[in-house]
Write a protein that binds this DNA or RNA. Structure first.
Length: 570
RNA sequence: GCGCCCAUAGCUCAAUUGGACAGAGCGUCUGGCUACGGACCAGAAGGCUGGGGGUUCAAAUCCUCCUGGGCGUACCA
């Protein structure tokens, strides 16, 4: 589609003597295909030309000459609508995708550039909830997208393996802990202890002081506490690893917060030299009042460190280690003020690259009317969700496709695909509602729907029974759905770029749904031996298979960018 | 109190970032396989975009004031 945009923009620019890029940015897609493929709104011209946009559109339309790319133009009110030469578009798109295969939509915009994506970052000792999944799948998908665009991506799981909660955990474990339970189901046991200590602290304020002391001992290197911390951390990591393996998510680095504790001294030295530190209420802070931001706490009154201290150290360390061009934090919207403070502090420390840091926030997952949170105890465990969706998938597979060679792996792919897609099919900043019924519904706007369409395409290609032809005649593809489909496929590269720019995979999932909608309509509508994809007319079948194969490639590629697998049968 | 965000069909979400008649899925009602996979498709009903005022050729989108909710606001992360 891009080439037509350029072409049309150049034509218009030549006629009205304006900048081509400006015209190009004004071009839009008409609301319906019957109105054309691209539209030029004339509103902005009307002031300078002192004519109504409708008249301008009419005059402009007459001056535009048709050529092999533009079939016809139409003036519709204040718009000039362009109809692309269908045969030209279909043949260009199919040739290109057939030729490039899974490389279609790749680009070199990222070559030589490094992007750091920090995501998932669960807290040790807290269960992995469905809300926490969002960071994981958004980040994992962004990683795929940026790699597709040629960037060198470093993915980091910034595990919450340090901080005050370890004082609580250590204290709780020392008082109520059970080694057998810990080894048996570490996260469950640690979470029970976590909840218990919170409740006890509510009742007995003196406990707060005791748990703080345990963290201080940990940070000062107390042997017993370090041993406990290491044990909690190791066990939790193993549990998380199981989940990541199921989801097909991995990281280049899983250095959590604890990795940076020996690096905060350097940070504090820098802050001191720049005169940024201030004592306040026995704690050490960076005063950000000048910038209309709340102060950021660097060291607590008991002299222990805070997440901000460690985050500053992490950012500086990463710049030195990876020399990134962009660093992205995939963290919930609740922390947006904090990230503004953090980036400001980095900037004040003399790091110009603080401007290359982005907080990619995402909305809450709601359960009923409430936001899900571990603190409130109203969370849904990811593990439960996955087992249930996989179980449901297996049931459907058993009913519909009893002789599948590997039903288990298909059930896994579909169940997990449903869960990932549910998260990525809404814009990332919207709060989403968790609902079991919808989670387990594999129809409509769902991951399995896309997987199903893909499997269906694979099946058609399989039935075709021969190698796909290199030579095909796209001029035979005259059905309107064939044109719509080809046109939609041509937008894929733009969609990927958009998703990268906005840090939002939603654009891709939405795009895939549209492809499936057109394809499935096309598939169902034409059933006669002549009109179906596997047409009795051999030449037609060859051409249609070429288009079908392009569609298959895009669905497969798009699902992969979302982090969802695309089984060939299901 | 102050700051940021949200409110769109019965429900869950969209709307080319100010553009043409606000669109999908689920739910409801009606239809469609002797066929290339029915996890699909076609059709119908369903809206004063929370409310008022403004800005302009044009507002779900921008400004303002209400109403209702969420989050944040120094020793959690």
């Amino acid at each position: 589609m891009k080439i037509y945009k350029n072409h049309i923009a150049a034509k218009i620019a030549g006629i009205i003597g304006d900048d081509k890029d400006r015209i190009k940015s004004l071009l839009e897609f008409p609301p319906s295909e019957a109105m054309g493929d691209l539209a030029f709104p004339c509103f902005t011209l009307s002031k300078g030309m002192r004519k109504s946009p409708n008249i301008i559109a009419g005059e402009l339309k007459d001056k535009i000459e048709k050529d092999d790319m533009i079939e016809r133009t139409e003036a519709a009110g204040p718009y000039v609508n362009f109809f692309v030469n269908k045969r030209h578009l279909i043949s260009t798109v199919i040739d290109q995708i057939s030729d490039e295969g899974y490389d279609y939509g790749k680009s070199d915009e990222g070559s030589g550039k490094t992007v750091i994506i920090e995501y998932s970052s669960p807290n040790i000792a807290k269960p992995f909830g469905i809300g926490h999944l969002r960071s994981t799948v958004i980040g994992a998908s962004l990683k795929n997208i940026y790699e597709h665009l040629g960037y060198n991506v470093v993915s980091i799981n910034h595990l919450g393996d340090w901080g005050t909660q370890f004082g609580k955990l250590i204290y709780a474990y020392k008082t109520w802990g059970d080694e057998t339970k810990l080894n048996d189901d570490p996260i469950k046991h640690l979470y029970e202890l976590y909840v218990q200590i919170h409740q006890e602290e509510e009742k007995d304020k003196e406990l707060v002081e005791l748990t703080r002391r345990e963290f201080k001992k940990l940070e000062e290197g107390n042997f017993e506490n370090i041993e406990l911390w290491r044990k909690f951390s190791d066990l939790s990591r193993k549990e998380f690893q199981k989940i990541y393996e199921m989801l097909g998510v991995d990281f280049d680095s899983d250095t959590g917060e604890s990795f940076y504790i020996d690096k905060i001294a350097g940070i504090e030295r820098n802050l001191k030299e720049r005169n940024l530190l201030k004592e306040s209420r026995d704690a050490t802070i960076i005063d950000l009042e000048k910038y209309e931001l709340p102060s950021i706490l660097i060291r607590k009154s008991d002299d222990t460190s805070l997440y901000a201290t460690r985050d500053l150290a992490a950012a500086v360390y990463r710049k030195k280690e990876y020399n990134f061009d962009k660093m992205v934090y995939v963290v919930g919207v609740a922390q947006s003020l904090y990230f503004r403070q953090l980036f400001k502090a980095l900037k004040l420390m003399g790091n110009v690259w603080a401007d290359d840091c982005y907080h990619v926030s995402f909305g809450w997952v709601k359960l009923g009317e409430e936001m899900m949170s571990t603190r409130r105890g109203n969370i849904v465990f990811l593990e439960d969700v996955l087992t249930r969706t996989i179980e449901k998938a297996r049931k459907i597979v058993e009913d519909n496709s009893p002789d599948l060679p590997d039903p288990d792996s298909v059930a896994n792919a579909v169940g997990i695909g449903a869960v990932i897609f549910a998260d990525l099919s809404c814009r990332r900043d919207t709060d989403i509602a968790f609902d079991w019924e919808r989670m387990l519904d594999f129809r409509g706007n769902s991951g399995p729907y896309i997987q199903y369409s893909h499997a269906r395409l694979c099946s058609v290609i399989r039935k075709y029974g021969k190698e796909l032809k290199k030579e095909y005649n796209t001029d035979l593809l005259l059905l309107p759905e064939e044109y719509s489909l080809a046109k939609m496929l041509s937008l894929y590269p733009d969609v990927i770029k958009k998703a990268a720019e906005e840090f939002d995979s939603f654009y891709i999932s939405n795009f895939l749904l549209e492809i499936c909608g057109i394809f499935n309509t096309y598939y169902q509508k034409y059933r006669s031996s002549d009109d179906r994809i596997l047409s009795s007319n051999n030449d037609l079948a060859d051409s249609r298979l070429a288009l079908a194969n392009c569609t298959r490639i895009i669905l497969h590629s798009g699902l992969k960018l979302l982090g969802i697998s695309a089984p060939e049968m299901m």
